[in-house]
């Protein structure tokens, strides 16, 4: 009679099948995050090359369109924001994968919850990026 919903949730366990499926999920999520880290590394190298050779590239265009000089700082800032947000997203995916996996392996409720929390934040950030992507697609289409 006195049982509240929290207590009923506490009795609810991640069973053997659910745990194994979740472990496989984290394996694939970890793989995706590692490949994303590699992609991120390539993006950073390209960005650094652009910064190093920036004067040669921008010099040509700013001679044609002097107004572009003001855009250069904004472009670099946009690139930095993109790289920062993308890094954060990938780190969250990696944390979700590793902490959840570790939580299941060691049966540590705290680690398991930390992994799920990272997963939640990862999906939240991805949702924001998805809506920005959709708006850009619509703008380009019409």
């Amino acid at each position: 009679m006195e049982q509240n919903t929290e207590q009923s949730l506490l009795e609810w366990r991640v069973d053997y099948d659910g745990g194994n499926i979740l472990k496989e999920t984290t394996r694939w999520a970890r793989f995706v995050s590692i490949v994303s880290f590699i992609g991120l590394g390539i993006c950073i190298i390209v960005f650094l090359v652009f910064l190093a050779a920036g004067d040669a590239i921008w010099g040509y265009y700013t001679r044609l369109f002097p107004a572009l000089e003001a855009f250069r700082a904004a472009f670099i800032l946009l690139c930095l924001i993109f790289l920062g947000v993308f890094t954060w997203v990938v780190v969250l995916l990696y944390r979700f994968a590793t902490l959840t996996r570790k939580g299941i392996d060691t049966q540590d409720q705290n680690l398991f919850n930390q992994g799920l929390r990272a997963g939640k934040t990862y999906f939240l950030l991805s949702a924001i990026l998805a809506i920005i992507g959709l708006l850009f697609s619509l703008r380009n289409l019409f």
Partner: peptide, 20 residues
């Protein structure tokens, strides 16, 4: 082998995850 619980905290995280 599986003593992990879907407690109040994890169910809240899972609910938010599902929504997003």
């Amino acid at each position: 082998l599986f003593e992990l619980q879907v407690d109040h905290q994890s169910s809240s995280y899972l609910a938010d995850t599902a929504r997003w």
